[in-house]
């Protein structure tokens, strides 16, 4: 397992903190990170996407309140920011589970039988694409291509890439994740 992205681009969601998803103010940490990012851009409107990613990293998803907080902080219209947030698939405007499964539906994965594997996930977690499992751990999203076609079928769970999937490996991945989250919650 390895990340396909540069480490600083996708960072692990930080769930150790209390749920801050509907707070109307940005935290000092969020502001600091946005300011650091802003130094790379010409104007505030351009840093909107990065600011949303930073806030999502801290809060898990972007609520209306979070959107408004970013809009106020950067002084760009909330409608404009919403345009950005709803354009990018990886900005979540609804609560998601702790593990977001990005399931690849590209041609290669399709040839290699991803439909059967997807059915397996859906049956195992009792969710359809776009839904979150009852225990709040998994969200299943379909994605057009993860760019790893020679190892199809593939999917991402969080920032981890899983390749050459089989029904057995899917069971293992999900069970492992479940176990880990169960351990964390009993700690």
């Amino acid at each position: 397992m390895s990340s396909v992205f540069e480490p600083e681009v996708v960072e692990v969601m930080d769930f150790s903190k209390a749920d801050r998803s509907t707070e109307t103010q940005l935290s000092a940490e969020e502001k600091r990170e946005i300011d650091a990012e802003f130094s790379h851009y010409e104007d505030k409107a351009s840093v909107g996407l990065e600011a949303l990613r930073i806030v999502q990293k801290h809060r898990g998803w972007i609520s209306d309140q979070s959107l408004q907080a970013v809009s106020d902080y950067l002084d760009i219209p909330s409608a404009q920011l919403e345009g950005v947030a709803t354009f990018f698939q990886l900005i979540f405007r609804q609560p998601v589970g702790k593990e977001v499964i990005l399931f690849c539906k590209s041609a290669s994965c399709w040839i290699m039988g991803c439909a059967r594997l997807q059915a397996r996930i859906e049956q195992k977690l009792q969710i359809a694409p776009g839904q979150t499992s009852g225990d709040g751990i998994f969200t299943l999203l379909e994605t057009p291509c993860l760019g790893d076609c020679d190892k199809a079928p593939v999917m991402m769970v969080g920032e981890e890439m899983h390749r050459n999937l089989t029904e057995q490996s899917i069971d293992e991945i999900i069970d492992n994740k479940k176990r880990r989250h169960a351990d964390e919650s009993t700690d």
Binding site: D64, L67, P77, S78, A79, L81, E82, T86, F87
Partner: peptide, 19 residues
């Protein structure tokens, strides 16, 4: 104007306000 935007994408493009 600042409060009317293209939201979403693909087949789901939506022209409206944030709220």
């Amino acid at each position: 104007g600042t409060d009317l935007q293209a939201l979403g994408r693909n087949n789901q493009v939506y022209f409206g306000r944030q709220q």
